Every structure is written in C-alpha cells, then in structure tokens.
Simulated scan of single mutants.
Amino acid sequence: MKIDKKPDFTVSLLHPKYWGVWFGFGLLALIVNLLPYSLLFKLGRGLGKFGMRFGGKRAQIARRNLELAFPEKTPSELDAFIEENFKNSGMALIETGITWFWPTWRFKRILVAQDISALERHEAEGKGVLLCCVHALNLEITARAFAVLGLPGYGAYRPHSNPAYEFIQYRGRTRNGNKLIYRTDLKSMIRVMRQGHRLFYLPDQDYGHNKSVFVPFFAVNETCTTTGTSILAYTSKCAIVPGSGFRNDNGQYEIIANQSIEDEYPQKDEVAAAALMNRYVEQIILRAPEQWLWMHKRFKSVPDETQTNSRYL
C-alpha cells in the first residue's frame, strides 16, 4: 500500500527562495500561539472583511451560487451572507494555523464532541468507514479534531509544489495520527477501509464530467456530482458516515458523526446514490451555511458539455 511518505528536512529547504514560506508560517505559528482565541477570532474575521475589497470576482461567484441554491433569498440577505462568508474565509487562515501549530492540550479546549457515536460504534466493530465531510472553511480543524478525539483517518492529498510549504503542510495535516494518501491512489483508499480504517472524503464539489452524474443539489436540479462515493463504498464494503465540525457561537467546534447511512445507500445505482449523498451534504451545510466554501463554482458543469454554462454569465 502506497501511503504518502513524510517529507524529510534537508538543507536545501533553507535556500533563500524559501525564506518567504518559512517567514509566513513562522509568523502565523507565533500569532496563533501567543494570542488568545478571542483575539484570533477577531483578527481572522477582520482579515476576511478586509479581503472583500479585493475579492470582487469571488464575491460574484458566491452571489451566483447562492442565487442558484437559495432563489428565495433577497438581495440584502445575500449581501449579509456573502460578507459573513468572507469573514469566515479570513478566519480559515487562523484556523489553519491553530490546526497545524497548536499543542493538543490547547486544541482540545475548542472541541465539542457533540455526537460521534456512529464512528465510535464502527471503531469498536473494526469496520472501515468512508467519512463524508464537506469543504467547510474550517476543514483543517475538523480533520484534526477527529484524530484528537481518538478517531484518526486517512486523507486524500495532493502534495504542494513548493517543498518548504509541503514540509510544513504535511506535518500540520498529520497531527495526532492522521495519515495521507495521494488523491489518485484509489487502491490504497479502498485497502485502508477494508482494513478497518477511516477515509476522509469530500463529495460536495464539482469535479467535472468524469465519473459524475447530474442530480439535484439545493434548488439546482442538475448539479454535477461525483460517483466516487459509490465506487469507494461498493468496492470496500465500508460504512458511510456523514461528518462535520462547524464553529458555534461560543467559538467551539461541534464535531458530529452520528449517522451511518450505508444501509439506505443504493450503491448499485450511481444516480440515486449521488442524489442521496447530496441530500446529506445539504443537511451538513445547513448546520452553518456561512462557513461553507461558496466561492467555488459549484454549478460550473452542465449535462451537455457542448453547451456554454449560462449559470455564471
């Protein structure tokens, strides 16, 4: 089984061309470790609001996604939603620093294991799990949170092209026992679940026509949705558990993985399976919709590849 190898530190990483990376992450580590969470929260959201001045294109994408997904929302509601989404995007930088650089004792203080009974049950049974999460802006925290709670998993991963960045990123994402598998290594993903481990999987974005079907997602009836969930679940005979870790009003992250849906999952019908998964993804997103990645073109693909996608025109 090919698991991504932890990158070694070499003298070449100290080359001046990498100094910017070391300085940037060093400053982030210093800030998140010196300041209390209350100030980090204000700083992160302040950065996000400031970033709105330069994020016009991303704001347009977010607005269009929201218009498509929630056509009942008024323009003023969309404005408030987008501003909150940008603030949470700025907070995502701070949350990445918290995830990668906080000691475990401090990290535990911001977690609330609201209900992780499904994962705990499968852990006791020794059954592999496809842990389906979403592209929440605090995704880095969610992944480490499961590991801190004693339920580490394997994440699909693409190494960064900058070796200094990769050295830091890899160590940040493998805290507390999490491991990484290269994102195209399907055989290893299946194997770890057959061996009783957990695989973090994100079925909520538009990955293009390859191995995808078009099914409803919020108010858009034909949304490009991956069939990877079906492929992984059918071939590994694993459990399927939706999971999330959104931040609540108290600045704590509520970790939820309380449903095991493989019994209702139509694995031999990719269209029905994708539609079912989208309904669970919707439920997850609606726990804290302003904390999801609305700045990604979720509806960029249309069923007929020869047609221009008018959704973003």
Rank of each mutant, 00 (worst) to 15 (best):
V129P: 00
L232T: 03
S310G: 11
Q259D: 15
E67Y: 13
S76W: 08
A164E: 03
E282V: 12
C132G: 11
Y280D: 00
A143D: 09
K300L: 06
S117I: 02
L40C: 08
Y154G: 01
T74L: 12
L313M: 14
F81C: 10
L68H: 11
P163G: 11
R121G: 13
W19P: 07
N176P: 04
K179P: 00
M277W: 01
F25C: 01
N178I: 07
G90I: 05
S244Y: 01
A233I: 04
L111M: 09
N138Y: 03
G55E: 02
F217I: 09
L139T: 05
L139H: 10
N85V: 06
S117W: 07
A124K: 15
V21P: 00
N138L: 08
Q252L: 13
G44D: 08
I141D: 00
P36H: 12
A92Q: 04
Q195S: 15
S301L: 09
D79Q: 12
S212F: 02
Y37T: 14
I141A: 05
A275Y: 02
I285A: 03
I190A: 01
K57G: 05
G44W: 00
V192I: 14
Y312V: 13
V112E: 06
V129R: 00
N65W: 02
L47C: 12
R144Y: 07
F246G: 04
S230N: 06
F107M: 07
G172H: 07
R194N: 10
F54K: 00
S89Y: 08
N138C: 14
E262A: 05
R173G: 01
I116Q: 01
T306Q: 09
R121V: 14
I94R: 04
I94S: 00
V129G: 01
K49D: 10
F107W: 03
M189L: 10
K87L: 10
G128P: 04
L35R: 13
T104Y: 11
G228H: 07
A147C: 07
P7N: 13
A275V: 07
G172T: 07
V192D: 08
